[in-house]
Amino acid sequence: MNIERVELKRLHIPFKASFEASFGRMSKRDLVLVSVYSSDGKVGYGESTSMAFPWYNEETTDTVWYMLEQFLIPKLLTAEITSPEEVAELFAPIRRNNMAKAALEGAVWDLYCKQKNISLAKGLGGEKEKIDVGVSIGIEPTVDLLLEKVEGFIQEGYKKIKIKVKPGFDVEPMREIRKQFGYDVPLMADANSAYTLHDLATLKELDQFNLIMIEQPLAHDDIIDHAKLQKELQTPICLDESIHSVEDARKAIELGSCKIINIKVGRVGGLTESKRIHDLCKAKNIPVWCGGMFETGVGRAHNIAITSLSNFTIPGDTSASNRYWIEDIVEPEVALIEPGMLAVPTGAGIGYEIKEDSVKKFLVHQKSYSKKTTESVG
């Protein structure tokens, strides 16, 4: 593929409104935008999905930058690769740091598809022309405020409503949503590892609300207790934080730890591993969906592409750009083509252009790495 240069840009993008999950509240997105340049003048783009703090997983924006600069970029610039799948193998000896790996591998996938003049979705084997999407709602100060947001997103036609829950903010919000909007609304709960088996009685209460799933109720690294919990619940358990690879998915499925898996591209180390997990789950009749990490349009484009694969049968979290941002860094912005649906881009690569003026507005730091400098350092 003849990759000549890699550029990193750290961006701070303010949310339209702060967002709270069980692990904390956020007011801005802190990310690394990765650009990969080839000798033919084409550029591929990727985006880190880490946060500024190690609350979702062990990675942060600082660790992502460090891993990219010290290990991943030098490996890429000194290797001869012919396809993006080889990047996953190239990075395999480096333990974890999946979000750093995914940011760079995603940029290579975009570049590869642009060189082949095909869409990223087609490059991954996707067949859908449009995808169903849902929305994620954070923990609100009051149930009344939560109900207002739920009503707005129902009116916008989102195909799944995900509610963040934690002990003390779980049964009552679900009861009030069902009371006000009925049982036809596709509803799920996301716990972000806020519970233990000692909370079994509370979790069993959620069965009455006919939820699509309860996402990651127990520890972030657990698949044993989730198997015990799933036997006690009628509601399907979906695993998120516990799944970092196709091997994790295989073990969880064999143990009966879940009935659904959320595939987040950053969490599992990139698009190649995401596709492997998708293929395994399809063979095992486990439906999957694509979770969101507050991505800009770059990351959303990657999510849309992977969601075009056939076993992504549950609406994901890839909502429109205006859900979180006053201003996105791509054009056109990611927008619904009809209620609750996004088009799968057909243009080369991710199918969106970078808005350089917006990138400059949110830029905190940038650095460029070339084959020449890498060779001189190495």
Rank of each mutant, 00 (worst) to 15 (best):
Gly351His: 01
Lys371Ala: 04
Tyr37Arg: 01
Asp184Ala: 15
Lys204Cys: 03
Trp325Gly: 01
Lys367Glu: 07
Thr272Leu: 02
Gly24Val: 00
Glu47Phe: 03
Ser376His: 15
Ala249Tyr: 03
Ile261Leu: 15
Ser274Lys: 06
Ile161His: 13
Lys114Pro: 04
Trp289Tyr: 15
Ala348Arg: 03
Ser38His: 12
Ala189Cys: 15
Ala201Asn: 07
Ile94Phe: 08
Lys251Asn: 09
Met99Trp: 04
Gln366Ser: 15
Ala21Lys: 04
Ala121Val: 11
Pro332Leu: 12
Met67Gly: 03
Glu151Asn: 09
Val265Ala: 00
Met188Leu: 15
Asn322Glu: 12
Glu20Trp: 05
Asp40His: 07
Pro141Arg: 09
Glu156Val: 04
Glu148Cys: 09
Gly134Asp: 11
Gly106Lys: 05
Thr60Asn: 11
Tyr369Val: 00
Trp325Pro: 02
Ile260Glu: 02
Trp109Asn: 02
Lys116Asn: 08
Asp222Tyr: 02
Met341Ser: 13
Leu90Pro: 00
Leu363Asn: 08
Glu338Ala: 14
Gly266Ala: 06
Ala102Leu: 03
Val165Ile: 15
Leu200Asn: 06
Gly316Arg: 02
Ala100Ser: 13
His302Leu: 09
Ala102Cys: 04
Ala100Lys: 01
Ile337Arg: 10
Tyr37Cys: 03
Ile214Ser: 02
Glu127Tyr: 13
Ala227His: 06
Tyr183Cys: 07
Val171Ser: 06
Trp55Ala: 10
Val32Asn: 11
Phe312Trp: 04
Ala189Leu: 07
